[in-house]
């Protein structure tokens, strides 16, 4: 099986300090992998490195191959093509990911039209509008026809995250990176978004890289996890194995914290 994403010995440095050290990780087509880590673990930087979005001054070394092509050192034009077809990201805070001055419909239309043009079947006018509505319906937004005309601040946080997901899907990526996609949301909204990501990944044969700090959330979304701490992957394996028998002390600590809250809630009678 050829990997969709193959990270080998990735290190990221800034001003002589290592933020990520020798990270290796492979994701095959349709595979779902979780990246668990707390602040400062380098998990979000990994997502940025994969999509070639590292800020200036952060130097990546090693190799990141996405759909067979090397990301590190690639020209901006090649990266743009990859970002469209191979990978898309959904961020934690949907309000900052959306343009506040553009209606939801137009924001979703933009990547849709770009994708269609690249495929040689340009979408315009009413065809584009109906494609936008289809996509909004696909992410289970209520009343898409009305929401398409709304501005980001007029809709709820959960709805905004759905819009951000719709924009990511517009390019039909083979890999969706979700960076703490539910951290800013309420519990019930979080459950809905997790369900949505699960359904979309299987319907669209998408691989998923789910990044988060909350063990229970990440575990519910993926099959395999990598635990990161201060830029180093300390443990990896199938979810059930890592949760049942963590080998690294750090993972044990995380699990203990999660268990504490889990046990406090208790079991429903």
């Amino acid at each position: 099986m050829s990997a969709l994403l193959a990270i080998e010995d990735l290190s990221v440095e800034a001003g002589g300090r290592r933020l990520i050290s020798d990270l290796s990780l492979a994701i095959g087509p349709r595979e779902r992998v979780g990246l668990i880590g707390e602040s400062g673990s380098g998990k979000s930087l990994t997502a940025l490195a994969v999509s070639g979005l590292l800020p200036r001054g952060l130097l990546p070394h090693g190799s990141i191959r996405l759909a067979g092509r090397e990301v590190i050192g690639a020209a901006e034009r090649e990266l743009n093509a990859l970002r469209g077809s191979a990978v898309a990201i959904v961020f934690q805070e949907p309000l900052t990911a959306l343009d506040p001055l553009m209606t939801v419909g137009r924001q979703v239309a933009e990547p849709l039209a770009r994708r269609a043009k690249r495929d040689g079947a340009p979408l315009r006018g009413s065809a584009l509008a109906s494609a936008v509505l289809d996509l909004l319906r696909d992410v289970a937004l209520p009343d898409p026809a009305r929401l398409a005309h709304a501005f980001p601040h007029q809709i709820s946080g959960g709805q905004r995250q759905r819009v951000a997901i719709a924009m990511a899907l517009a390019c039909r990526p083979a890999l969706l990176i979700a960076d703490e996609p539910t951290t800013a949301l309420d519990v019930t909204t979080q459950a809905e978004i997790l369900q949505l990501l699960d359904r979309l990944a299987s319907e669209r044969d998408m691989a998923l890289l789910f990044i988060g700090h909350d063990l229970a959330v990440v575990a519910s979304a993926v099959d395999r996890v990598v635990v990161m701490r201060q830029g180093v992957a300390v443990e990896s394996g199938p979810v059930a194995t890592v949760l049942a028998a963590p080998s690294h002390d750090y993972t044990k600590g995380l699990l203990q914290a999660a268990r504490h809250f889990d046990d406090a809630i208790g079991r429903r009678l």
Binding site: V187, T188, D214, L215, S220, A240, A244, D262, I265
Partner: peptide, 16 residues
């Protein structure tokens, strides 16, 4: 009930 159902739980491989 809806709120409680939405909370992600760790209960893996444990039978209730």
């Amino acid at each position: 009930r809806r709120l409680l159902d939405a909370v992600p739980r760790l209960a893996f491989g444990e039978t209730p």
